[in-house]
Design a binder for these strands. Structure first.
Lengths: 233, 233
DNA sequence: GGTTCTATTTGCGCTGCAGCAATTGCGGCG
DNA sequence: CGCCGCAATTGCTGCAGCGCAAATAGAACC
């Protein structure tokens, strides 16, 4: 990827917001490109954080695994998202593993370069606070959800959140989720089992709220109904 | 509180780490003091974030309340902790309510002053990333716990965490928790009910693992046993 | 010292949801 | 075109832990 192309990617990265094109050029020239094929991991949870990354294209799922092998999906990430940067800046091992859901292109900077960039462009540090703070709030909300709401409600909330982030209007007033989400994925996002997710979606399918018959793309047919479920006490 | 006293407080605040005493003096002189009595709140969840705070003395619990009135304890905070600062920097409403567990002294800075300080001392922004990043990791760990472990294990983990943060060795090889923790508090920390917490602690009390007879201070008599429970699959 | 108030304990019944297992349907591949 | 593999579905069973409610014990207050 040429520098101008990189710049146009970086322009959309909140982490680099407020830098002019010349400054972005500096940032871009110091980056390395890391191509990532579907299913591949960018790094492994527990590894030393030597590089910080920004997702250029593609979609990545961030997994955290327990010592006994259980998995929790921390978040989904799209173009412009930071990956592993917090660990680099805090000098701690990566706390999770990013898995490519489709072919991706990632930009990387070494820890010292990142530190250097932040020193030269203090705006970056402020942006970082914003980005990390946003994730903190998101996690607080999720913790609250898992702690206080029952499964059906959590699944509804999660679907609406995904739809909001990446949904596309489909014909007939519905919202379509443009990438495959397995029952297992939903289970790991909502802290339940794939069985319960399956049962819940089946029920909704029969009520015409969603369309989710066996691994076709998920379509939300009656968003208002889902919102209702997500908000009921 | 005189400036020198404030400085000695600020020296122990990670947010201001790496500043020399002269710089800390600048920071200290721009602060306001906010005394806080037991049970009082520093601000309310949802309010506009006009000031950022640092806890000087005392102990504070950070609560998040759902629209329907349920409560989740996000964290306990002690001297040197940041309160509400993330919200100020992100220009969003406070996402939670800090409640004083005992009489506290809090230092405050207005949003513009805070921004100004961060500009003059870029180290502060870097420190902020570290602090916020730490909380992010902590929350990720808790989410994982709630999502994958059963109640008994979560209570054990939580007790060990509290003991680690603020426990004191008591005579007889036990660890004592020096401030009162109600069953309700533990329930809100572990995402369960006070009933289940009570039952669990009773059982442990009978096995001699902890000492928790009706609201005397909590003493952990056999920490190794608790660790065992916290780690068993 | 007695009374009230609140936190805690504990019994009991119920249920949401996990766990298991068998079946089914879809997509891919030879 | 038919076979294979994997995700999803679904019935059944069991139980962890929630909710309700009554009893009890400290603490606080007069």
């Amino acid at each position: 990827m040429e520098t101008p192309a990189r710049i146009s990617v970086l322009q959309r990265v909140p982490f680099f917001a407020g830098l002019d094109d010349e400054q972005l050029g500096t940032v871009a020239r110091e980056a390395h490109e890391v191509p990532l094929k579907k299913e591949e991991t960018l790094f492994q949870q527990g590894e030393e954080a030597i590089h910080g990354y920004v997702l250029g294209w593609g979609r990545i799922r961030l997994d955290q695994t327990t010592p006994d092998g259980q998995n929790v999906v921390l978040r989904y990430m799209g173009p412009g998202d930071l990956i592993g940067t917090v660990a680099v800046l805090r000098r701690v091992p990566f706390p999770a593993t990013p898995v490519a859901l489709e072919d991706c292109l990632v930009l990387s900077w070494s820890a010292p370069r990142l530190a250097d960039l932040m020193e030269r462009f203090p705006k970056i540090a402020l942006n970082a606070i914003g980005v990390i703070g946003g994730r903190l709030e998101e996690l607080q909300a999720r913790l609250q959800e898992v702690a206080t709401q029952r499964v059906e409600r959590r699944i509804a909330s999660t679907l609406m959140r995904i739809a909001h982030q990446s949904g596309r209007r489909s014909e007939g007033g519905g919202v379509e989720i443009p990438f495959p989400v397995s029952r297992q994925d939903l289970a790991e996002m909502t802290a339940t089992t794939l069985h319960t997710v399956s049962r819940t979606l089946s029920a909704w399918d029969q009520q015409g709220i969603v369309e989710s018959r066996r691994s076709s793309h998920l379509v939300i047919r009656k968003p208002h109904k889902l919102v209702e479920i997500a908000e009921q006490a």
